[in-house]
Amino acid sequence: MLRRHRSALACALLLALTACTGGSGDSGGPEGAAGGSATTSSAPPPRKVYVSVGDSYATGFRPPVGGQRGGSSEDAFSHLVAERADLRLVNLACSGATSADLVGGADCTPGNRALDAPETAGRTQVDAAVAELEASAGQVGLVTVVIGGNDLIPCASQPQQAVVACATQAVTRIKANLATALPKLRAAAGDAPIVGLTYPDVFLGAWVNDEVPGGQRLAELSVSLFRDFFNTSLKAEYDKVGARFVDVTEATGAYRPLAELVPDPVHGQIPGAVATVCELTYFCELTDVHPKPAGHEVIADGVLRASGL
């Protein structure tokens, strides 16, 4: 009896360090199961997928400035969003893409793809996105779409009397192509947030850019073009599929009255809206429509707020 009590006491003491078993090598009892569960850790859940489609804004294209190479970069708002929301980015965007390319264009050439872009096997962006979304069903965290800028840009080189007509035709094409693309993306994404984007009003930079004929008049026309026509048309298409819309034009200060002047170290007294677009894009000094890193930051903030991530 004494020996049995000593054995029980020893077993109780050993439980503090290891499982006490009735025989050597036996780990199948309750104590062994408890010991095993104490040393087992659960793997973290996989990150949700973020699918990005669109043009060079999503690829983070930048001109070769400051000793940096030109082309796709990690400046892209898409990279910032993925990092801050802890999402796995599948970036299918293609620099130079128009809205027609989104739904019917050929495979994106390697030089125009985003960094770490997957192979799309000749599929359009939308078809590749749908395949990725369907393969990630239940694990989709976000879809973003930024398209239409390359449809609109040629209008800036038109004679001033033709700018509005050119823009009207471009927006008609953009709406038709979005009407094809967005329902497919919504069906594949399920309830995941889809965020549509517009652009900074880079044409405001024509106010100080001598390379653009009639620059100040173009800058004046561009404000109503974005605010009252281009952006409202885009938003209406995104609304149809329950997507959220980020007015990047407003977020980058384009709707401020052009009579409100601010001092600029390069150009002197200029409208505040112009100064902001010079600060956030490369248009004023390089006639390049792409955002600087600070511009991508503004866009990323808008996406994160709109998506609730």
Rank of each mutant, 00 (worst) to 15 (best):
A189E: 09
G149P: 04
Q158R: 15
Q158Y: 12
N209F: 03
L178V: 00
D210E: 13
G148A: 09
V163N: 06
A192H: 09
A188M: 10
A192P: 08
G148Y: 01
L204N: 03
L152W: 04
P213Y: 09
A162N: 15
V195W: 00
P200R: 09
P193F: 05
G214R: 04
G214V: 03
V140L: 04
G190W: 11
P159C: 06
P193M: 07
P154F: 09
R186I: 10
R186M: 11
T180G: 00
Q216D: 02
I174H: 02
T144G: 11
T168P: 02
A165R: 14
A167T: 13
I153R: 11
D191Y: 05
W207D: 07
A167I: 07
G205S: 02
A187N: 13
Q169I: 10
A165E: 15
N177V: 00
G149S: 12
L218H: 05
A192Q: 07
V171D: 08
L185C: 12
A181Q: 00
L178M: 05
V164R: 10
V140H: 02
A181S: 00
C166T: 10
K184G: 06
A165Y: 09
Y199E: 02
R173V: 03
P193I: 07
P213Q: 07
G148C: 07
A206D: 13
K184N: 11
P154S: 11
A179P: 06
V143E: 05
D191K: 13
A206H: 05
F203N: 06
G141M: 09
P213V: 07
C155L: 09
I174A: 01
N150I: 04
Q139P: 00
V195P: 00
